[in-house]
Computed example of a mutant assay.
Amino acid sequence: MSEPASPEPDTRVVQRQRAVSAFAQADGQFLADAWRRLGGDRAVTTLRGPEVGLVMVRGRAGGGGAPFNLGEASATRASVRLAEETVGHAMVLGRDRERARLAAAFDALWQVESERVAVETEVVAVVEAALAAEDHKRRSETEATKVDFFTMMRGED
């Protein structure tokens, strides 16, 4: 008897999670400018929030140890509905209500089949590229401060 295959994650779900992550990490002004270009004059109905609260930040020692509570961080969440009846949700770190509302609006817009490619190329890809560049810069700066310790043997001449 063979073992049941592990369920593969739905690619659309994975793609949406990636997009929602990009919207949540994007700069508020970038989202506002992108919404003017892509969202246009679409009606956005607020379903929940934006509301500010606290979330518990958890960590792991060494990246793989037992989880522990690191502390609390401010977060803002929002849920909106577009005229196309798609509902978007967002949760962003910080207290920026407009950024949370825009991130939720982009989540809803991403779900509109005819708009997905534009949102992917003009928002998600741009945010991911900016985050990758920022990560590369931070890693380069950290690498520049790396110290190599070594032991020298003193020999007899």
Rank of each mutant, 00 (worst) to 15 (best):
V92L: 04
R12A: 11
L82I: 04
V147D: 00
V44T: 01
K137N: 10
T11D: 11
A19L: 01
F106R: 05
A73K: 10
L131P: 03
A34V: 05
R36M: 10
V44R: 03
F68N: 03
G49Y: 09
L131H: 05
V44F: 01
D41V: 12
S74Q: 13
L70D: 08
L102S: 03
D27A: 00
L47T: 08
F68Y: 15
A144L: 11
A43R: 15
R99T: 01
D10W: 02
L70C: 09
A103S: 03
F106D: 00
E115R: 15
F150P: 01
R16D: 00
A73E: 10
V126R: 12
V13M: 04
F23A: 01
E84Y: 07
R16T: 06
R36D: 15
L47Q: 08
T11N: 04
A73P: 00
M91W: 03
R18N: 09
R36C: 11
V126C: 02
A83Q: 12
V20M: 11
R58S: 11
N69D: 15
V123R: 01
P9L: 11
E156P: 11
A24V: 06
R81Y: 08
G155A: 12
L109W: 01
V127T: 05
S6C: 09
V80M: 06
E141T: 12
S114K: 14
L102C: 06
L131M: 13
A105S: 14
E141N: 12
F150H: 13
A100W: 07
F106T: 00
Q25T: 10
A103C: 06
A104N: 04
G155R: 14
D10L: 04
T86P: 05
R139P: 08
R116W: 06
P50L: 07
E134V: 01
E51G: 09
P7T: 15
N69P: 01
P50Q: 04
E122C: 02
T151D: 13
R48D: 11
L47H: 04
D148L: 15
E141K: 08
Q17G: 11
A73Y: 08
E98D: 15
E84N: 14
N69K: 05
A43N: 13
V126F: 07
G65V: 01
V147Q: 09
P9D: 13
A100F: 07
S6K: 13
D96G: 03
A61W: 09
D96M: 11
E143C: 10
V123H: 02
M56P: 00
A100V: 04
T142K: 11
E113N: 06
V87S: 02
P4H: 06
R18P: 03
S21N: 12
S21C: 09
R48V: 10
P9E: 15
V112I: 09
A19F: 02
A130M: 04
A105E: 08
V92Y: 00
R116D: 01
G88Q: 07
R60Y: 05
E113I: 09
H136F: 11
R154F: 09
V119Q: 04
V13E: 15
A133H: 05
R99K: 10
F150V: 08
T76Q: 06
R95A: 05
V112G: 02
G59W: 06
L54S: 08
F106S: 02
V92I: 10
V20H: 06
L47V: 10
G88M: 06
M153H: 15
V20F: 04
P9R: 09
A100M: 07
G28N: 02
T145K: 14
F106P: 03
R48A: 08
A75I: 08
R154G: 12
